[in-house]
Amino acid sequence: MEPHTSSSSIKTRFLVLSDTHGHDLPDYSTYRADVAIHCGDLTTGSKLEEFKSALKTLQTLNAPLKLVIAGNHDFTMDIPMFRKKVAEVTPPLEPALVKKEYGDYGEVRELFNETCQSGIVFLNEGTHRFTLQNGARLKIYASPYTPSLSDWGFQYHPETGHTFDLEKDTDIVITHGPPRGIMDTTYSGGRAGCPRLFEAIARVRPRMHCFGHIHEGWGAKLLGWRRKISENPSHFTDVDNGRSTVIGKLSQIKPNTQIIETSHCRGDQDPLEAGTQTLFVNAALEGTDDCPIHPLWQIDLDLPRAG
């Protein structure tokens, strides 16, 4: 892929996936990108062998930089929760059995450190900056946290909420779960997204926000923002529906589709206007019996030139 460049920006390709849950996936190595992003839930039961399998899959992705966050199923990476789960089991588990199945506390993070030469970077919550091989600058905010009443990893009570400290000029936000009201509808018809995450995104308006978690919400939408964001952002007051476009949704997937390609650079049909639009992507790969594996997303965006 030859990047399109101008004096101020560089066309950059992303491969985005989430919720692989240890599944055997298609061979995506023919699709080259500048950055691959995994939005969490690499595993189903957070077992050591599942992480090793997921890392092998990540190593096959054809991108020099592969950014990864955890999801609620990856609870052994949330060490306080991992300790809590082990302590609550009755009768007590044998330490040797825990180590065999799940690894020592912190062992999974060490596995990621060992794969850094493959371009795999595990992101803790917060802001991260990269200079890409294509010459672009990338500012990322990452967070694995999702609202829930259950007892998995990286979760918080919906009524308590969570603080998402996004900085201005953030290019891309990677979270495990969706914001409220955007590709977060569950099979039961309820909304599972986080209102505080939506508010944080509305205030910063990144170029792209990618996530997973709600498998049935797979899809993408280019959303327009109103010129002035209100003090307490909401869909009613701050979304410009006239400048919003659905890029893809679950009902549109054709059988045996492996990848969905979309480009929002200068000259494209739907160019993204930085600062006034955000591309939202639910990239959950795990599907249903009708569609066991959802397509991978391939996305082209203009990024600022480094330096």
Score class of each variant (00 low, 15 high):
M1D: 12
M1I: 11
S7L: 13
I10H: 06
I10L: 07
F14Q: 01
V16S: 00
P26G: 01
D27T: 00
Y28A: 01
S29W: 02
V35T: 10
V35A: 13
I37G: 11
I37M: 06
H38F: 11
H38D: 13
H38I: 05
C39D: 05
T44N: 13
S46E: 08
S46C: 09
K52V: 05
A54M: 04
L55K: 03
T57F: 09
T57S: 00
L65C: 06
L67M: 10
N72F: 12
N72P: 00
D74R: 11
F75H: 04
T76Y: 00
D78N: 09
F82R: 05
K84D: 14
V89G: 00
T90W: 12
E94I: 14
P95V: 09
A96D: 12
L97Y: 11
K100R: 15
K100M: 15
E101Q: 11
E101I: 15
Y105N: 07
E110S: 09
F112G: 05
F112Q: 08
N113K: 15
E114V: 00
S118A: 13
F122R: 05
L123A: 13
H128E: 04
L132N: 04
G135V: 07
A136G: 09
R137L: 11
L138H: 09
K139N: 13
I140A: 09
S143W: 10
S143C: 14
P144D: 01
T146Y: 02
T146I: 15
P147A: 04
P147M: 12
W152D: 11
G153I: 05
F154H: 04
Q155F: 02
Q155P: 02
T160Q: 13
G161I: 10
G161Q: 07
T163Y: 06
L166F: 11
K168M: 07
D169L: 14
I172N: 01
I172H: 08
I174L: 15
R180M: 12
G181W: 03
M183C: 14
D184Q: 05
G189I: 04
G189E: 03
G190Y: 13
G193F: 02
A200P: 03
R203A: 06
V204M: 07
P206F: 10
H209R: 07
F211Q: 04
H215F: 06
L222I: 01
L222S: 02
L222A: 01
L223R: 10
P233M: 05
V239R: 06
D240G: 04
I247D: 02
L250F: 10
S251M: 04
I253R: 14
K254P: 03
I260C: 02
T262P: 04
S263F: 07
S263I: 08
H264R: 07
Q269V: 12
D270C: 06
E273R: 14
T276F: 10
T276P: 00
Q277Y: 01
T278S: 10
T278N: 08
L279W: 12
V281L: 05
N282A: 03
A283T: 11
A284R: 11
A284H: 12
A284E: 09
L285D: 03
E286R: 15
H294M: 02
H294R: 15
W297L: 04
W297V: 02
L303S: 10
P304K: 04
P304N: 14
P304G: 07
R305N: 01
A306G: 08
